[in-house]
Structures are given as structure tokens and as C-alpha cells.
């Protein structure tokens, strides 16, 4: 019996939900108020510099994104799949970890661990969803590694959880596929290249400093890769898809480099 391929978890099931506007109200407000004037000033400066008119900035942006895509390729080429990030001592760990998201910490909407499920989609044999309890029973690996943010700050964190490569094998994922994509409870999306997903220091973290992760840091499940910038480490994961189709991510859509390896 032929089974139809499972639909992408990224395809909206029932049109555009108005709640998206509510959830992103702060972002929209920020764009309107705080940055419009500043943005206009910078656009003006940019215009003088390049000799383009403002209407050409789409062209400039498309050019710069082409370069960014080239930089993705460069990063893939120099990525060392077996090279381990330096690890640190437990007494160097910063507690609690530093918060970062596309909104402030007081706007975090906690996820109910009891009803939470990890949905699976795409090139995976066993797509049965996982409960938090099932995931927390998997063998754990601990990483004490440096978190480096694209902004320039860093700290040492102590994360544990199931190794992503081993989890992918356990669920029968096609590890020759190109990408592993994540969807999060706060509508954040993230996509990892398979080489990074299979790196020994990429885990689905359930604990920080030996304690279950707290709400602001991604309870019940988040990604932690030692070879990616901070923002690649999706929090409050609700679904995972293994795919050969690139799914643009929350930040890549806004112009941040997609690969974002470190």
C-alpha cells in the first residue's frame, strides 16, 4: 500500500492564524517605532556610499544575500565534522545561562510538559511522537561548552540530553538527507545542516547544570550544538523534520547568515 508522504510540518494546516499578529505585536511595534527613523538614516548613508537610490536597496539586499549564501558554502567546506569544541570544567559554568530570544524574557510562554509532544516528520521511518517523559528517559550526554552569540557575548554552559545523531538513528531518520528542521512553541524555526546534526557535540538538551531546563531556556526540549552560534539552538522544540528541502529559518528570513557555524 503506497503511503502519501507526510506533509511538511512547516505548511500551515489551516490558513494564517491571526494569533501570529498577537504573538508578534511587540516585534511589529519595535519595527514601527524604534527602528524606522534609525533605519531611514542608515539607508540614506548607504545610498550615498553606493551611489544607489533607495529603491535599489532591494538589489543591494539580494546581492548581499547571494554573498551570504556563498559564505554558507564556504562554512560547509571548512566544517570539521570530527573536530571537538573545547570543553570546560564544571566550576566554570555560568548559572543560570544567559537568556536570548526574539523577545524579552518576561514574554516567554511556558510550555506544559505534561501535554507536550515532539512531532516527527519527513524522511524518518518511525514518526511516532515522543512525550517529554520518553525523551527524558533516553541516555544522556553532557556538554560543557562555550555558547557564542552572534552579537559577540559568550558564556560557558553545561547542557545534557540525548545526542541528536543517536536520536536520528533511533527513529530511523535518513541521515543522508541534507537538513534537520525544527519548529518551536514560539513559532521560531531553525534548520541545521546534516553534518552539524550528526556532530558528536550536538544534543537535544533536557537539562542545564544537571537540573531540568527551566522555562526561559527551552523547557522541555531544546537544541544545543557546540559548533553553531547561539541563535541556531532552537528552544521549546515541538517538531522535527528530516528533509532535503531547505526551509528558511526565523533569522535567515531576516537576513542573518543561515549556516552560522562557529
Amino acid at each position: 500500500m503506497a503511503r502519501s508522504p507526510s506533509p511538511s510540518i512547516f505548511r500551515p494546516k489551516q490558513g494564517v492564524d491571526q494569533s501570529v499578529m498577537d504573538e508578534n505585536r511587540k516585534l511589529v511595534r519595535d519595527i514601527n517605532r524604534r527602528n524606522l527613523l534609525r533605519g531611514t538614516l542608515s539607508l540614506g548613508a548607504l545610498t550615498m556610499l553606493t551611489g544607489c537610490t533607495v529603491s535599489d536597496t532591494d538589489t543591494v539586499q539580494s546581492f548581499l544575500r547571494t554573498i551570504s549564501a556563498f559564505n554558507d558554502k564556504v562554512q560547509e567546506a571548512i566544517f570539521r565534522p570530527h573536530h571537538l569544541a573545547p570543553t570546560y570544567r564544571e566550576d566554570q559554568v555560568v548559572k543560570p545561562p544567559r537568556f536570548n530570544a526574539y523577545y524579552d524574557v518576561e514574554d516567554v510562554k511556558p510550555v506544559d510538559g505534561a501535554s507536550w509532544k515532539l512531532e516527527l516528520a519527513g524522511l524518518i521511518q518511525d514518526k511516532r511522537p515522543w512525550t517529554a517523559q520518553q525523551i527524558y528517559q533516553l541516555p544522556e550526554e553532557e556538554l560543557i561548552v562555550r555558547h557564542i552569540c552572534v552579537e559577540g557575548w559568550d558564556y560557558i554552559g553545561q547542557w545534557s540530553g540525548v545526542n541528536l545523531g543517536q536520536f536520528l538513528k533511533r527513529i530511523g531518520a535518513d541521515t543522508t538527507a541534507k537538513y534537520v528542521s525544527f519548529k518551536c512553541a514560539d513559532d521560531y524555526t531553525e534548520t541545521l545542516d546534516m553534518a552539524t546534526a550528526l556532530h558528536p557535540q550536538t544534543i537535544l538538551a533536557t537539562k542545564y547544570a544537571r537540573e531540568p531546563i527551566t522555562d526561559p531556556f527551552g523547557f522541555p526540549l531544546r537544541l544545543r550544538s557546540a559548533t553553531k552560534l547561539g541563535f541556531k539552538n532552537a528552544k521549546w522544540i515541538t517538531a522535527m523534520e528530516v528533509t532535503n528541502t531547505f526551509i528558511p529559518t526565523f533569522w535567515s528570513k531576516q537576513g542573518f547568515n543561515w549556516f552560522a557555524g562557529i
Binding site: 527602528n35 534609525r38 533605519g39 538614516l41 542608515s42 539607508l43 548613508a45 548607504l46 556610499l49 539586499q61 548581499l64 544575500r65 554573498i67 551570504s68 559564505n71 552572534v150 552579537e151 533569522w251 531576516q254 537576513g255 542573518f256 547568515n257
Partner: peptide, 19 residues
């Protein structure tokens, strides 16, 4: 000062830098 920086937001500064 923002008038002396290149890029509308941080990501655009990064795009220019890495070009």
C-alpha cells in the same frame, strides 16, 4: 553613532562585513 555605521540593522552590518 548610527550615522557612521553601515547596515540598517545588525544583520545588514554582518552581511556587509562578510562581503
Amino acid at each position: 553613532p548610527d550615522a557612521l555605521t553601515l547596515g540598517v540593522w545588525a544583520q545588514h552590518g554582518l552581511q556587509w562585513h562578510f562581503f
